[in-house]
């Protein structure tokens, strides 16, 4: 599966200047062998300066083909700016970005053919119904009229809106609008999907549905770049992550490596008598040992526990003190 751990990936440590160390290699059992080392998005020393603000500062990262690549960071970390460069909307100040070898700022049309972009704001024409909305963008991508009806039908089915084809966009719920927006990004069957904060403003159920949908798309062989500041969500979803802060890359690599790299975790245990105690554990094994000791050795009634570790903790560790 696409979201399984990647056993042979190198451990990538964050470096002070934000550059990556080593090449990220991903192996996918479902992918053809040729795709193993193929790079979908290649960003090298990308910098975008607005006045005296470095929105993106010397960013270098590579997105393996077929991966679900998460860009995480607080607001203003440079995620949207990076996406805007990749989506052929923004010229970088310096550095290069390549989408399947094509430069978005020089060969925008070629990139647009291969890339679907879903902005974090929902730009929907309220007057249209869902099917007409997709049909409009299909014609914008020069898809012949005779193919459009079938295409919009199957896309609406994919995003689970087939019952809403004739519903006005303004009548759809936020989650439905989000899925319609995703369907729009998929209208020309792009190889690469760029999803800017797709889960923002969604209720938990809609969030889970969206996550399943993204997994499904990855299963179709698409490379997916997704940004979020909801870290736990990306932890479950992404094969690879990059942590950005203030325009700089703090860490990147396979999700497991980044999560594991955070070292000890904080385990909060709530007992049946209402007591709440906090322990530390250096690894998964140590955490299991801790719980075994509490329950078996000490015979205490554990009601629940929470392990504050993984990506969230990694994120906090890596960005500590730098967030303004």
């Amino acid at each position: 599966m696409a979201d399984q751990p990647i056993p042979d990936a190198e451990s990538v440590e964050p470096t002070p200047d934000g550059a990556t160390t080593g090449e990220v290699q991903a192996s996918r059992t479902k992918e053809p062998p040729a795709a193993h080392t193929e790079i979908a998005v290649d960003i090298a020393n990308l910098t975008k300066v607005y006045g005296d603000l470095n929105a993106v500062d010397d960013l270098t990262l590579q997105v393996p083909r077929g991966s679900i690549y998460g860009l995480i960071g607080p607001n203003g970390a440079g995620k949207s700016t990076t996406f805007a460069v990749l989506a052929t909307m923004l010229k970088p100040t310096s550095g290069t970005a390549k989408v399947f070898g094509a430069d978005p700022s020089k060969d925008a049309k070629a990139v647009r053919r291969m890339m679907g972009y879903m902005p974090d704001v929902l730009g929907l024409y309220d007057g249209l119904d869902a099917a007409s909305y997709l049909d409009f963008f299909a014609s914008g991508y020069r898809i012949p009229r005779r193919k459009r009806k079938e295409l919009t039908g199957s896309l609406l089915e994919l995003v689970d809106l087939d019952g809403k084809a004739k519903t006005q966009v303004s009548q759809l719920s936020r989650g439905m609008k989000q899925r319609l927006s995703l369907a729009r990004a998929l209208i020309h069957d792009p190889e690469l999907l760029i999803l800017d904060e797709p889960a923002s403003g969604l209720d938990p159920r809609a969030r889970i549905e969206l996550r399943d949908l993204i997994r499904q798309l990855a299963g179709m062989g698409k490379t997916i770049l997704v940004s979020s500041h909801i870290l736990s969500e990306l932890q479950d979803l992404c094969t690879d992550v990059a942590i950005l802060e203030a325009g700089k890359l703090r860490a990147n690599g396979p999700t497991e490596t980044i999560s594991a790299g955070s070292g000890e975790r904080v385990v909060t245990v709530i007992f049946a008598d209402g007591a709440r105690e906090t322990f530390t554990a250096a690894s998964d094994d140590e955490q299991v040992e801790l719980l075994r000791r509490l329950i078996v050795d000490d015979g205490r009634a554990v009601l629940s526990f929470r392990s504050d570790a993984g990506l969230e903790r990694a994120f906090m560790t890596m960005t500590e003190g730098i967030v303004q």
């Binding site: 647009r112 929902l122 024409y125 309220d126 020069r142």
Partner: peptide, 16 residues
């Protein structure tokens, strides 16, 4: 109006 409703950028990055 399109810019205000955030529909302009998706339109601009089509092949139109």
């Amino acid at each position: 109006g399109e810019r205000e409703r955030d529909t302009l950028l998706p339109l601009q990055i089509t092949l139109m």
